[in-house]
Design a protein around this nucleic acid. Structure first.
Lengths: 251, 251
DNA sequence: TTTCATTGTGTAAAGTATACACAACTAATC
DNA sequence: GATTAGTTGTGTATACTTTACACAATGAAA
C-alpha cells in the first residue's frame, strides 16, 4: 500500500485525535434485502481489503449518534433502526494493522481500537452506497458469499447475524427492509433468509397475522406469472410498540 | 470534595493515560445471592457517592481481561462468568463530573468516558469486598434498596438486571451464585428474586429437572424447622454446555 | 404427642407449535 | 381460447408445552 495521503485527509490523519475519541471506533453491519437474498453493505479500502463501514466518535457526540452518522454517510439514510450488539475489544483484534499504510505510522489511527458493533436494517432500493474518504468501493454483498474482511470484521458480521436471528424471536422485522407494500411470500422469504431455514407457509402466515402488526390491503400484486398475492403493509404504531416492548413466541 | 491526592495515586492521575486507553472504562454489576435476596456489590468514593465498581482498560489488555481484573480486584475471585451486556456512550452520561474533584481538573480521568457494562454472578460467601484506591467502602446492597448512584450507574444496573432476566430464558443460572450443594427451594428463590415474581413450585422443579443439568444427592438438608429437602448440585459439564449452547423454553 | 410450616409428588386442561392437501388463480404456451 | 405450470389462499387434527392445582409425609418446636 503506502499511498500518498491526499491533502484534504492529512488533517484527519494528523489531527483527528482533536476531534475524535481515541481508541474507540464504531462498525456498522448494514443489512438489506434484494432479490430474495440478505445483503450486507461493505466498503473496500483503496488498494486494500474489504471491511465493514465504520468510523469514529466525536468528542461531544453520543455513541448512538456516531453510528447514525456513519450509517447516513454510507447510505444517505437517516432515522433508521440501529442496534448496538457487541463490543469487540481483544487486544490483538487488528491483525496486521501496522502493514496497512506506513504513511500513517505515527497517526492516532494506528493506535489500538476497541470497536462497538451496530447493525441496521435498511431498504435496499433507497440506498445509494457511497465510499468514504479512504475507500474506493462501497457495495452490497450477498450474505452467503462474503469475502475475507479486514481484522475481525468477519467475526463482527457473524455476531451481528447471530444477534439478529435471536432478536427475531421477540421483535418484529421488515419495516425498514421491505418496501412499503409487500406480499406475505416476500416477508416469509426475508425470515427464511435470515434464519437460513424453510418455514411452513401456512404456519408463517398464521403467526405473523397473530402478531397484529400487519394490515392486508385490497390490492394484489400483479405481474408475476402466477396467482396474484395480496399486498400488506405494517401498522407502524403497532409495529413500533412491538419493537419496543417485545413479542412472545418465536421461530 | 477537593481532597488531597495521596502520593501513591498521583502517578495514576497524572500519568494513567500512558497505561490505560483514554475515554474508555468498564463498569461491573456484580450480583450475589444471600438470605434469599439478590445483592449487588457497590463501592463508595471517598466522601462521595456510591457507584458500580469499575476501572480502565490497559493499552495491551483485552476488554474482557480488564473486566476480569476489575472483578478480581474488588472480590478476590477469578475464573467467574462475566458477561458484557451494553455500552453506555451518551455524550452527557457523566453528569456533574466536573464537580467531583477539582484537583483532578487537568487529569485524563476528567475526560469524557464511554463505559462498557459487564455483569457477573458470584458466590456471596466467597467474596471479601475490597474498596479500590479512591473508595473507602465496598459492600453488598439489596437489589430492592439501591441508593442513588453516580452518573448513569443506576441505569447501568437496571440494564444489567433486564439482560439477566432475559438470559434466564435460554441460559442456566446458579452455578456461581449458589453454594456447591443447594436445595430446590433455594434455587427457586434465586429465580424468583431475579424475575421478581412467584413461580409454581411443582412446575419449577419439573422444568429445572428437565434441563438435565442438576444431580440430586442422597443427602438432605437438615437443621431447618421443617421437612428436610433434598440437596442438589449442578452437573458442571452439562451446565457449561447449556450455558454455551443455550436452552429452549423459558419462564 | 401435637402442631405448624414446608417438602415431595402427578394429572388434567389450556394454549401453542407443527404437519399437512386441495382448490383458485395468473401468465405463458400452444 | 384452451391447456399447462407454478404459486397463492385457506383450516384442521395432532403433538407438544405450559399452566393450574391438592394432599400426604416429614422434622423441629412447642
Amino acid at each position: 500500500m503506502n499511498k500518498e495521503i491526499p491533502e484534504l485527509d492529512r488533517d484527519f490523519v494528523e489531527n483527528g485525535q482533536k476531534t475524535y475519541l481515541r481508541h474507540l471506533s464504531v462498525d456498522c453491519v448494514i443489512f438489506g434485502f434484494h432479490e430474495n437474498e440478505l445483503k450486507v453493505l461493505l466498503i473496500r479500502w483503496k488498494d486494500g481489503p474489504w471491511c465493514l463501514p465504520g468510523g469514529f466518535v466525536k468528542k461531544e457526540e453520543s455513541l448512538n449518534t456516531s453510528a447514525s452518522r456513519i450509517l447516513e454517510e454510507r447510505t444517505g439514510l437517516n432515522d433508521i433502526f440501529l442496534q448496538q450488539f457487541h463490543v469487540f475489544g481483544d487486544a490483538n483484534r487488528e491483525k496486521n494493522k501496522k502493514n496497512f499504510n506506513s504513511k500513517l505510522k505515527n497517526s492516532w489511527i494506528m493506535d489500538r481500537f476497541v470497536t462497538v458493533g451496530y447493525y441496521a436494517l435498511v431498504e435496499y432500493s433507497k440506498v445509494k452506497p457511497k465510499p468514504d474518504w479512504l475507500s474506493d468501493e462501497c457495495s452490497w454483498w450477498d450474505i452467503h458469499s462474503i469475502p475475507s474482511l479486514v481484522y475481525d470484521h468477519n467475526e463482527i458480521l457473524e455476531k451481528a447475524l447471530e444477534v439478529l436471528r435471536l432478536s427475531l424471536n421477540d421483535h418484529p422485522i421488515g419495516y425498514n427492509l421491505l418496501p412499503e407494500k409487500f406480499t406475505m411470500p416476500e416477508l416469509q422469504r426475508l425470515y427464511e433468509t435470515i434464519l437460513d431455514k424453510e418455514i411452513d407457509r401456512r404456519n408463517f402466515q398464521k403467526k405473523l397475522l397473530s402478531l397484529d402488526i400487519l394490515v392486508r390491503l385490497e390490492e394484489r400484486k400483479t405481474g408475476g406469472a402466477h396467482k396474484a398475492p395480496y399486498l400488506y403493509r405494517f401498522d407502524k404504531r403497532k409495529y413500533d410498540r412491538a419493537l419496543k416492548e417485545g413479542l412472545t413466541g418465536g421461530f
